[in-house]
Simulated scan of single mutants.
Amino acid sequence: MSSSWQGGQGDVLRSFADSLRRHEIKVGVYISPADENQYLHGVYANGSARSRRAIPTPVEGDDRAGDAAVRSFTLDATDYGAHMLNQLYEVLTEYGPIDEVWFDGAQGRIPPEKVETYDWDSWYAVIRALAPNATVAVRGPDVRWVGNEGGLARENEWSVVPVKDSGNGSIDYALKYDAPDQGSREALAEARAVAQYVQWWPAECDVSIRPGWFYHEDEQPKSVEQLTDIWFRSVGRNSVLLLNIPPDKRGLLPEADVARLREFRERIGLELPEDFARGVRVRADGRRPAYAVDGDPDTAWACPAPSRGTLTVDLGKAREADRIRLGEDIRRGQQLEHAVIEARVPGSSGWSLVAEVDTVGASRVLTLPAPVRAREWRLRVTGSRGAVRLAEFGLYRSRM
């Protein structure tokens, strides 16, 4: 209302949400808990106790008054927590459906002796009620921050990690957020003293296409090579990639960034151009081996038992491969702890080791140092927590 934009009548979130839906893109909102304006107004970090609050909180002239269709809640919150609840209520009822709510846990630039304990339990409750299909990300129970802003996952990224409640129902890391290992057996043992349980909490890798999160005319987007490296070290390591594209002063995505996105998409297509293991002959122990090469993420080869299982792929003729893509059926969890990939290389006796892998999860992409030419390939599971269900075994020859 105080802005000169559209004469004080503009609604930037409405314009944003409507534009995304016109282009069939899901709508997410980043609502930072730290609010320095509310600190200046005496609401944020004012030391108020949690008490029962009516949400939405009626205000003078509220056009929702007396509307029987308006859903209401009574939730525990501080003064600021109630402000956030009302803001969440407005966003989730006036602009929905909202597909993701993205929090951080920052405290803002307030005096060091001032602290606001966030009402996570109440915030989560109102989101689950008003946007039941929304992902609550980063400082939320559905997706966690990988621990850096470079877009880089760990070499072995586990989706099941030890967690603790750090106050008011907050889902928090049991180990340090940037610990080099969050989910191996060793990490789980290390966390036993502080962890309350383990949580399915997959990692999200956030990074900006530019040096910073906001648009500056003197900055340029990352190169295709940089973005491709990030992709392999995020999506290729069982993580979600969140690539920030900051709008310019027109409210549009800069032409240079849009052009770079197209180049980036073309590059990934060249890195993984054709899965020539798709639909080929396979044999294996366990059940339904053909499901590993049918291209359907909802079907999977089931290994016969934990730490056992061999899948052999026959391409029909010798083919060169330098990229291997694997994926587990994560509806059954993330189970694989070690596997070897081998090939019958012409001119050698028996099977030759091509690669080893300690985690897979939803998506794991392995890049070989040099192309390997073979007709028969196989994957042997040699370590796992439960029987592995492999939904994808793909072989590619990059065109780079």
Rank of each mutant, 00 (worst) to 15 (best):
D63M: 12
R64Q: 12
A65L: 13
A65W: 06
D67L: 13
D67V: 09
D67K: 14
A68Y: 05
R71L: 12
S72R: 14
S72D: 12
F73A: 14
T74N: 13
T74C: 11
T74D: 15
L75A: 11
D76K: 06
D76T: 02
D76I: 00
A77H: 10
T78Y: 10
D79G: 06
D79C: 05
A82V: 05
H83S: 05
L85E: 08
Y89N: 04
E90H: 14
E90V: 08
V91E: 00
V91K: 00
L92F: 01
L92A: 01
E94K: 15
E94P: 00
Y95Q: 00
G96H: 04
P97F: 00
D99V: 01
D99C: 03
D99P: 02
E100P: 03
E100D: 10
E100H: 04
E100A: 14
V101P: 05
V101K: 06
V101H: 06
F103P: 05
F103H: 08
D104G: 07
D104F: 08
G105A: 15
A106F: 07
Q107G: 12
Q107H: 12
Q107D: 13
G108P: 05
R109D: 14
I110Q: 10
I110K: 10
P111H: 06
P112D: 15
P112H: 09
E113D: 14
E113L: 09
E113V: 07
K114F: 08
K114A: 12
E116P: 02
E116K: 03
E116T: 02
D119L: 00
D119I: 00
W120P: 02
D121Y: 02
S122G: 07
W123R: 03
W123Y: 13
A125M: 04
V126A: 03
V126D: 02
I127M: 13
R128H: 04
A129G: 03
A131M: 01
A131E: 07
T135F: 10
A137W: 00
R139K: 15
G140E: 01
V143F: 06
N148V: 07
E149R: 07
G150E: 13
G150L: 15
G150V: 01
G151N: 03
G151Q: 03
G151M: 03
G151R: 02
G151E: 04
L152Y: 10
L152C: 04
A153G: 15
R154P: 07
E155S: 14
N156P: 07
E157V: 06
E157C: 13
E157K: 13
W158G: 07
